[in-house]
Amino acid sequence: MKIHANQRPFQIAERNVGSLSSLALLRWALVVVFLWFGAMKFTAYEANGIAPFIINSPIMSWLHSLFGVQGASYVIGVLELSTAAALIIGAVQPVFSALGAAMSAATYLITLTFFFSTPGVAEATAGGFPAISAIPGQFLLKDLVLLAASISLLLASVQTSRPDARKS
């Protein structure tokens, strides 16, 4: 992608399709989710609640080995609160619009892998996969919608290189 001198590679997502677009709703909904979930990671209740997901994850299990159950939860909490901060700053700073959306998308890509690594997702009494349990199966499946919201915000935050593709 070639960037011209008067063109920036990033923009505030909402400005790509209108100042009061539905992307603003996605941004602020994601902010609420990351603030709430991030803050909860500093409680023993949440640390123990996410432990089965972390310990069974080939991507994240090292966190428990390195930091313990509560320490891993702290690390994830800091990352989630950092994602919320980037999304908030992204409402006024274009590069943070893309950064926050990318961090959010990465979060949900990782949590969707729990769908395959966490025991109990498939519901045996209903015939197994594709039947999924309420917890953890349906709990994890909602991250598909959060991933779509994150990707929508990210795509709107990355400016195209074609001048005719830009909206006024």
Rank of each mutant, 00 (worst) to 15 (best):
L20T: 09
S82Y: 03
S82K: 06
S82T: 15
Q159W: 00
P58S: 05
P9K: 02
F37C: 05
T111P: 05
P130C: 08
T113W: 13
R166F: 00
N6T: 09
V75M: 15
F115E: 03
A85N: 06
L146G: 01
Y74T: 13
G137D: 04
F42E: 03
Q138K: 14
A122R: 07
S19F: 01
L25K: 05
I135G: 02
M1D: 07
S117E: 12
I3R: 13
T160D: 05
Q159G: 01
L141A: 14
S104E: 10
F139C: 01
F139D: 09
I76S: 11
L66V: 15
S117N: 13
L30E: 02
A5R: 14
A44W: 14
G38M: 03
S82G: 15
G127I: 10
V31C: 04
L66E: 06
G127D: 14
L154W: 07
T83R: 04
L87K: 09
I89C: 02
F42P: 01
G77F: 07
L35R: 00
V121C: 09
L26P: 00
L81W: 10
L153K: 00
A102C: 11
L23Q: 00
S161F: 05
G77L: 12
L112T: 12
S133P: 08
I3Q: 15
V75W: 11
T125W: 05
R162E: 12
G77S: 08
P119K: 10
S97P: 05
A5G: 04
F115D: 11
L79H: 07
A131P: 08
N56L: 01
F10W: 12
Q138G: 06
N6P: 01
P130F: 06
S117T: 15
L35I: 12
I12P: 00
T125C: 04
S65K: 11
